[in-house]
Computed example of a mutant assay.
Amino acid sequence: MPNDLRPGTCRACEGGVQPLSAAEIDAALADLPGWIWRDNGLEKTFQFRNFYETMAFVNALAWIAHREDHHPDLQVSYNRCTVRYCTHAVGGVTENDLICARAVMALVQ
């Protein structure tokens, strides 16, 4: 896994982008520890020591989402944040979701 926060670049979801197959998603999950594939999306819950750390993570995630123009669904509470990626335009997981999940993993390493 790359050590930078730019493990790829998202591309526009219009124009023939298709969801990844189950085999492609399963193979990708081997390099994304703790991420699960559920309800046509990828998700992982991150634990933190306090609200400040949680919000710092959320703000860093917002920067990644803005840069890639690909935005996760977030569930935020005091000491945890669940991140969920799904390309709603195609109703499933695309390479963009994997790129962003990898960037999140690089962020927390």
Results as ranks from 00 to 15, higher is better:
Q18G: 12
G92I: 07
W37V: 09
V90P: 07
L74R: 04
G92L: 11
A60K: 15
L98F: 06
R38Y: 03
C13W: 04
C13V: 04
I25Y: 11
D39Q: 11
D26R: 15
V90H: 14
H71C: 03
Q75K: 07
N59S: 10
N50P: 13
G91S: 12
T9P: 08
G16P: 05
A27W: 13
V104I: 08
W37H: 15
G41A: 06
I25G: 11
A27G: 11
D73Q: 09
S21H: 12
Q75W: 07
C81M: 03
V58G: 02
N40T: 09
E43I: 01
M55R: 04
A101T: 01
F57I: 05
A62G: 15
V90E: 14
R80M: 02
F57T: 07
T45V: 02
T94P: 04
S77A: 05
E43C: 05
M55E: 04
S21R: 15
V58D: 02
C13F: 04
V17C: 09
R102W: 00
A101L: 00
P33L: 05
R67T: 12
H70W: 00
H70Y: 01
W37G: 06
Y85L: 00
A30Y: 09
V93Q: 03
W63I: 13
D26W: 14
Q18P: 07
L42K: 02
E24V: 12
R49D: 12
G92V: 07
A23R: 15
G41W: 01
V58S: 04
V104R: 01
Q18V: 13
P72V: 02
V17W: 08
V76F: 00
W63A: 15
A56V: 14
E68K: 02
C81P: 08
V83W: 08
N59A: 08
M105N: 13
F46C: 05
C10I: 05
Y85A: 00
L20I: 13
R49S: 12
N59C: 10
D97C: 04
C100M: 06
A101D: 00
N50S: 14
L74H: 02
D69Y: 04
Y85M: 00
D31Y: 10
C10T: 07
N79E: 03
P72H: 03
A12T: 11
L20N: 09
L42E: 02
Q75E: 05
K44N: 07
R80E: 08
S77V: 01
T94M: 09
T45A: 05
L98N: 03
W35N: 01
R49H: 13
F57Y: 06
H88Q: 13
S21G: 13
V83G: 07
A12P: 12
N59V: 10
L32Y: 05
Y78N: 08
T45W: 06
A30V: 09
R67S: 13
M55V: 15
T82A: 05
N96Q: 06
C13H: 09
V76G: 01
G15N: 12
A65P: 15
Q18T: 14
A22M: 15
I36R: 14
